[in-house]
Design a protein around this nucleic acid. Sequence first.
DNA 1: CGACTTTGACCGGCGC
DNA 2: GCGCCGGTCAAAGTCG
Length: 257
Amino acid sequence: MAASLGLGHDTYAAAAYPPPPASSYPCSFPPGLVADNDAVPEFPPPPAAAFHDLLLDARAPPDGYYHYSSAPAVFANAAENEMSMLLCSGGGYVDGDGRRQAMAASGSPGNAAARPSSRIGFRTRSEVDVLDDGFKWRKYGKKAVKSSPNPRNYYRCSAEGCGVKKRVERDPDDPRYVVTTYDGVHNHAAPGAAAYLLRASPPCSSASAAPLLAAPWSSAPSSAAACCSDADWEARLHAAAAVAAAAAAAHSSESSY
DNA sequence: CGACTTTGACCGGCGC
DNA sequence: GCGCCGGTCAAAGTCG
């Protein structure tokens, strides 16, 4: 695995931001999830990292332009599923050549005034390209990109008035992985698979995002183990990722603008 | 027949 | 100014 995580052209320069102290992670990974040491050797896994708290840790940079969360990456393995996650908000990212790029916005790429407030990328090992995250998406474009042999697909949330977009592509370095990048924040509830995740508050999180971040592992370990088959777990993990991403983005926007 | 996907064209930003 | 590139549009095709 390279020093930075390959997300197609939009390689997130995670190495530029050191991990926060262990004390920033007051909670535990959910049952069955472990940090993936091999994926990012320069980021030793926090000893006790809360998935949702990491997601909530996005903050706007001082210059309002570009940053990574102080918890730049979350890695998880569960049975046959692996997922890694990166947060980015504030409207910019660093491409594969290390150049700082403006966030493209709908209808006006690079327009700082119109750019979305957040972008969050997931890297998930999956045989299917499009993960069911509980939201309904409409594909609006497909593009071969120079940085990857695999095409990049563009989706928009089908909900009326919701401008959330996502890009999906196979990792050029490892086609077993799907890289999904979300732009924006849903302004509506998840109509499908993610809905069942919206339950009791997690043990520690911000009040604003708590309802969205209540993942399966937020309940007692015994009940979590009892309700999750491998397939169920994978589905929940995917859905939780999307829900958490939306919440993290919302939190980032609330605290930054 | 409506919703969705496909795909080539188009647009704007960026580097040279 | 020009060409490259990523992102989006929109017409045509497909599907249930």
